[in-house]
Design a protein around this nucleic acid. Sequence first.
DNA 1: GTTTAATAACTGACCAGTCAGTTATTTATG
DNA 2: CATAAATAACTGACTGGTCAGTTATTAAAC
Lengths: 214, 214
Amino acid sequence: MLPAGQPKFKRRKADRPDEIVAAAMDVFAEKGFAAARLDDIAARAGVSKGALYLYFATKEDIFRAVIEQGVAPNLGRLQTALAEHDAAFPDLLRAFATIVSSIATDSPVGGIIKMVIGESRNFPELARTWRERLVEPALGVMSGAIAAAQARGELRAGDPRHCAISLVSPMLLGVIWRETFVPVGAEPLDIPTLAQQHVELWLRGMRPDAGAAA
Amino acid sequence: MLPAGQPKFKRRKADRPDEIVAAAMDVFAEKGFAAARLDDIAARAGVSKGALYLYFATKEDIFRAVIEQGVAPNLGRLQTALAEHDAAFPDLLRAFATIVSSIATDSPVGGIIKMVIGESRNFPELARTWRERLVEPALGVMSGAIAAAQARGELRAGDPRHCAISLVSPMLLGVIWRETFVPVGAEPLDIPTLAQQHVELWLRGMRPDAGAAA
DNA sequence: GTTTAATAACTGACCAGTCAGTTATTTATG
DNA sequence: CATAAATAACTGACTGGTCAGTTATTAAAC
């Protein structure tokens, strides 16, 4: 009856928040916001439910923290990727596709995207945050680069924003596919291959006519 | 106090189910499954909560009916669209894009897609149904048509499934954009224009090399 | 007057959030 | 070094509200 050796908990104030957010990420990604129980999150974080409230005021706050934490690292990687700006446009794009597919493949963005989409009406601020901090910057950088390449005559005309969407949408769809249909028996998409094939298609489709003047 | 003329309700057994599903579609699309209250659905359908249970056994059944009803009409329209198969491939594709964007623009698929994505883990059968009855048939028809065109030498080589995804993903993303970011202040995407521009890009990107033999 | 669509008051399960108490850890004291 | 007093991280049983689903009752329809 008496706990022989091990103590029944450790005091680890510094590590708890991150551990809780990580556990919450898993549970939220699996169940969605409403169906996720705080008891589950606590259990997965190796902590009691009460302890959650030592670090977060409400369930919504935990959710916010999860979504927030999903923004920063990806934004960082994208910016880093696009900082190496000196490559020729096609090669830049190929590198970009590689990075996006690696993010898509081995980070939990998938689950987060799902939640941002699914809970956008219930948590408008989250959709706003995600758009302002991740989607718009990324789209902005990309359409900027596209517009510049168009100005240099490397790409043909066309609304740069639409072009950027044409470019990234298959990768995003691949992530959504993995989250939605693969758990239900669908063949996984080979996102890196898909991305590569699509980038080449896009580059050919955006190549200016041979005879056109710059 | 006494209801002078009008009766307090009408008995309309035949019409109720559709009205309930329509009301539920709105509420589910706005709130998601868990956050949607049956009282709200009932109120919007002009009926008491108890009446829902005359036609559906559980909340999940209502949800299933909503998602089911989202499948059929779209499947129908797509099949009809692709039945007119005699046009040349590029024109067929342009017509297809027009139809897809009109579906995207003025049908409630957006809300349904959101729910299928968001609740796929909690309702695996729904994701399965959607995939089996809508996504796979559509993808199948499209990649079949693409493969045929490739065999005829009208399109260059490349995994037909990936090609099909490259083709439709911007439209899908447009719908998701509208559902997720527009309610939060984002500029709406012009889906028809996006679709048109993308189809042309895709056709150019898939055009075989001029010198290549058939 | 019989049938049954429809209502509205009700029940019970579930779960976010609370808090009184417990235990690990730190700090003061001999 | 002990060891006792103080602190704060942590626990888990409890509660209050919400809401899916039930049921006793009413009233429309024929």
